[in-house]
């Protein structure tokens, strides 16, 4: 069965790019444009991995992470931060990786692969 990845980003271009990148590489990607939606989708779909933007309208990425970590069903989902903000590697202490925009697709795929096997 295909592994599920949830992409959370408010930037449409990046979101679409990530979704097709994951789908093309044998994953099943779904998406959300902000924290509220992200949490809803996560609860419904129970993804195996989440990529998370930091700066988004309304609540920021780290706040989603907080909510995930308070939910026993979601708290062990690995999170990869993908952000253009300086110092983003400090934003989510327990993220499996933190990538700067623009990111290297091969690097991202490699991390995803390592995380999901």
């Amino acid at each position: 069965m295909k592994k599920k990845i949830l992409v959370i980003d408010d930037d449409l271009n990046i979101r679409d790019y990530l979704v097709s990148l994951f789908n093309d590489n044998g994953y099943d990607a779904c998406l959300a444009g902000d924290v509220k939606e992200g949490l809803k989708v996560a609860k419904k779909n129970k993804p195996d991995l989440i990529t998370l933007d930091i700066e988004m309208p309304g609540e920021w990425g780290p706040r989603l992470y907080r909510q995930l970590s308070q939910d026993p069903q979601l708290k062990n989902i690995p999170v990869i931060v993908i952000s253009g903000l300086s110092g983003h590697q400090y934003a989510v202490v327990k993220a499996v990786a933190s990538l700067s925009k623009p990111f290297d697709r091969d690097e991202l795929l490699k991390i995803v692969k390592e995380t999901l096997t």
Partner: peptide
């Protein structure tokens, strides 16, 4: 002070 303190997305 720390970058970690700056990812402020609102107050709850």
């Amino acid at each position: 002070n720390r970058p970690a303190a700056s990812f402020w997305g609102g107050l709850s």
